[in-house]
Structures are given as structure tokens and as C-alpha cells.
């Protein structure tokens, strides 16, 4: 095995171009588990820790560009109010030690259907900024996932940053697990209200081969909500929204949960997160 240590982003791209078989390592919280448990040995490790360009974030108009090296702990501390959905999801990842090392870019690289950052990234319409020596590609999040633990990065590409629109409305994340800490989601759900466009965003985790949106449920809810914020949420609307979210999933039975349980809990999480979001929305309108 080789250990490649680029000191700059340009060097990292050049090394990856020369060694497309090298596995990038950022926080190592996925990569090192695989190596320690001998689930396959990378031909080379490409350590991105020394690349300081990756540890910065910046606001570019309505969008936050989060460098691939920004840890969950920093995202929660520094961006919690601008990206409430992603921050809520980040708070549920692993333990403090894991959040001190793990990154959203690593979550994307692993592309596990259960990864906690995916539902809020889908609900907010994030963009993955991928780069290689050939240039930069802006990959809409819906086009990033290719299958269980597979993504659409080219072998010479690295994730430079994730671009997430700053929240303009309420965002909530919910996750089912066996305890309150250190759990891989049985299933998860994120909602984002985009009042300026009168649009609803959703993201479903761990209930299909890839994280996915629930477009039918989004359109239904967008047309039913009283965007002026005068009317309380119709319980019937919330119930139907939950059913439509559940209908968008295609889960399997596995060690963490049965498919029918996942479908049921998705409907419940969708209804509940909508309730929280609507309370916040009408509260804001009246304030």
C-alpha cells in the first residue's frame, strides 16, 4: 500500500489523476474501519488532511460552500443556524469523537443509503462540487448517488466542496435508531420548506438503494399549504403527506429493521417533522 500526502489541492488532484486507484481519506471514520476489519485493502491512501484549502467554508450569495475537510463538529458549531437541517443530522452522527473527524464529503464518498447527511442535502437541493485535473463538475445531489455505496464521481475526481443553500425556511431531520447515540439509521427523513418559491424539499434515508426525494409528496404539500401562514396545518394533509413519503420508499428487510417497519416509521417521521416545520413557519409569520 502507498501513502500519498499532497500538501495542496492542486497536488491532490495531480496525485489522484496519476493514481485513480488511490482511496481518499479525510476523517477516516469509514476508511479505517474497512482497513482495520480487513474488508479490503486500498492500493493507496490519499490523505487529504494536509490540504488546508479543504477545511474552509464560505458564503457565496445564497449558498454556503463547505470545504470537504469541514468536520461535523465544526459544521454544527459554525453553520448550525444557517443550515439547520444538515446541522441536526450532523448532531446525530456517531459520537463526539466521530464528529470531530467525520465529514459530509466522507459521508458522500461512502454513499451509504443510511448516511445521515443525505436526507438534508436532498431536501435542500445541495450540489456536490467535484474536481479533477480536467476541470470542475457541479453535480446536483439527486444525480450523485448511483446505487448502494456507489456514486457518480469519476475515478480521477475528488470532492472539493458541498454547496448547500442557506435556509430560508424551517428545516427538520428525524432518524430512527435503537438508542440516542451511535446508531446507524434504521431510516431517516428530512424536510425543508422553501417559502420564497412556495416549494417543499424532502429526503429519505435508509429506505431504498440510494437516498432519495419524495417528489409526489413534495408537490402535494406545496399545493396544500397556506403559505400566507394564517391557517393551521390540516391533520388530513399531514397524514396524506406522510403516506406519500412512505410510498416513495422501497426499503428492504435487514438486520436493522424490517421493510414494513421502515415504511410505517417514514410516514410517522414525515408527519411529525412537517408539524414541527409548520409550527415554526406560522410562529415566524405571526412574530
Amino acid at each position: 500500500m502507498d501513502f500519498l500526502r499532497p500538501l495542496t489541492w492542486d497536488e491532490a488532484l495531480a496525485l489522484k489523476a496519476g493514481r485513480p486507484d488511490a482511496t481518499p481519506i479525510q476523517g477516516g471514520t469509514d476508511v479505517m474501519v474497512e482497513i482495520n476489519l480487513d474488508k479490503g485493502r486500498p492500493a493507496a491512501l490519499l490523505d487529504l488532511n494536509p490540504v488546508t484549502e479543504l477545511t474552509a467554508w464560505s458564503q457565496e450569495g445564497p449558498v454556503l460552500r463547505i470545504g470537504a475537510g469541514v468536520t461535523y463538529a465544526r459544521l454544527i458549531d459554525e453553520l448550525g443556524s444557517l443550515l439547520p437541517g444538515l446541522a441536526q443530522a450532523s448532531r446525530t452522527v456517531g459520537s463526539p469523537q466521530i464528529r470531530n473527524r467525520g465529514t459530509v464529503a466522507g459521508n458522500l464518498g461512502a454513499a451509504s443509503p443510511a448516511g445521515d447527511s443525505h436526507p438534508p442535502l436532498l431536501a435542500t437541493g445541495a450540489i456536490v462540487e467535484a474536481e479533477s485535473v480536467r476541470g470542475t463538475r457541479m453535480i446536483p445531489i439527486t444525480e450523485f448517488y448511483a446505487g448502494v455505496k456507489r456514486h457518480t464521481l469519476e475515478p480521477d475526481e475528488l470532492i472539493r466542496a458541498v454547496r448547500v443553500p442557506v435556509a430560508t425556511g424551517p428545516q427538520y431531520f428525524s432518524k430512527i435508531g435503537t438508542r440516542n447515540a451511535m446508531v446507524i439509521a434504521v431510516c431517516s427523513f428530512a424536510i425543508a420548506l422553501h417559502p420564497e418559491e412556495r416549494r417543499v424539499g424532502t429526503g429519505i434515508g435508509s429506505a431504498a438503494p440510494t437516498p432519495r426525494r419524495a417528489p409526489v409528496a413534495e408537490d402535494f404539500l406545496a399545493s396544500e399549504l397556506d403559505w400566507e401562514g394564517h391557517r393551521p396545518l390540516d391533520p388530513e394533509t399531514a397524514l396524506r403527506f406522510g403516506e406519500m413519503v412512505a410510498a416513495a420508499a422501497s426499503p428492504i428487510d435487514d438486520v436493522r429493521g424490517r421493510a414494513d417497519y421502515r415504511v410505517h416509521s417514514l410516514a410517522v417521521m414525515a408527519r411529525r417533522t412537517l408539524g414541527w416545520a409548520w409550527n415554526e413557519y406560522t410562529g415566524r409569520r405571526q412574530a
Binding site: 501513502f3 476523517g27 477516516g28 479505517m32 482497513i35 491512501l45 473527524r101
Partner: peptide, 15 residues
């Protein structure tokens, strides 16, 4: 200065 799981840090990353 940040607590981490040493089992998940690759040796070369601490250079």
C-alpha cells in the same frame, strides 16, 4: 487538541 478515536486515524495522517 481534539479528542479522536486513535483506531480511526491512519498513522501517516499524524505526520
Amino acid at each position: 487538541g481534539t479528542p479522536v478515536c486513535a483506531c480511526l486515524v491512519a498513522a501517516g495522517q499524524v505526520e
